[in-house]
Design a protein around this nucleic acid. Sequence first.
DNA 1: CAAAAAGTGTCCATTTTTTAGACACTATGC
DNA 2: GCATAGTGTCTAAAAAATGGACACTTTTTG
Lengths: 178, 178
Amino acid sequence: MQKEKYGTILVIDDNEAILTALRYCLSGTFQRVLTMTAPDNVLKKLSQEEVSLVLLDMNFSLGVNNGQDGLFWLRAIRKHHPELPIVLITAYADVSLAVRGLKSGASDFITKPWDNDELVRKLKDVLDAQNDLATLDEVEAEHIQRAIDRCHGNVKLAAEQLGITRQTLYNKMKKLEV
Amino acid sequence: MQKEKYGTILVIDDNEAILTALRYCLSGTFQRVLTMTAPDNVLKKLSQEEVSLVLLDMNFSLGVNNGQDGLFWLRAIRKHHPELPIVLITAYADVSLAVRGLKSGASDFITKPWDNDELVRKLKDVLDAQNDLATLDEVEAEHIQRAIDRCHGNVKLAAEQLGITRQTLYNKMKKLEV
DNA sequence: CAAAAAGTGTCCATTTTTTAGACACTATGC
DNA sequence: GCATAGTGTCTAAAAAATGGACACTTTTTG
């Protein structure tokens, strides 16, 4: 099952001119480019359409440009679609906003004006990066490693925090080669 | 086991004046404030000392201020101490650098000049945030959610990718209320 | 310092979960 | 319309997790 093009992208920006520019710029890379001028109905849209990536502008409330709206919708989308990658885009190169966006689960943070080639490359990177899903055992092993690391090797404490018995943790450590 | 102060912080910055300022600013919050003027021996240092947080400057190569050095050391430290939180600090409010830093696992990104109170608050947040560790069931549930989401509800495929049988996935979904 | 407390590593028997395989049924595609 | 793929549910057998126990070592602390 080879992929030729990068599925459907949903672009949300309140500026029609920007949407037009992005539609043009992205149509070469994505099978479909959906656009919305307001994020209000994005959850409905996402339940109807099969979207593989969202490009979300950060500023919608007129005159309020601190990105609160964008952060709100980012979190709302992620809550219902934790696997859907979301790339943020904003006119204001605000480090603090970028940090909060990424901490809230955004895949990347782009500033306007953007370079078309770079934008496409970054979007491709995001989709390429999310390709393989870890096995349950791998996630388990990783988390166990974390727990033991954090408990400075105290197996009993680690087991408690993991919500399993000490013996089970021994078993898993052996089986998962942690 | 109550914590009164926030353990040991290791500050790495090539500017002695900044180290002095930070030592003063952080000594009220941390039990110990260790400092280094170059990151070259940081891994040795970390194997000798029990550090709970690293504050890492991004620019060390004279005249080269793109943060490559900082990113390199960030990744080097995280590779050997995946549980150790690292906060980046830089004189250049560079969004792209912040994005790469966070993607490489930094806990936060601070720009100079900093506000002492805000710095301390952010460092505390980082340490507070990493306090409670998710149980194995929680991580499992989260990852299962991810898998099913990514497989667009195809249970059989999700189970395969998770490395478990379809029936087990049904069991877990019921038990974990996914 | 020595007693108390906490942690280790390894048993056990019992309960729970996972497994492979099967089943009738329902979408989906060619 | 026939084939393929997925669903939801069921077995019996295999595997893993559980609470409890044990002798022993390390850490804390009065």
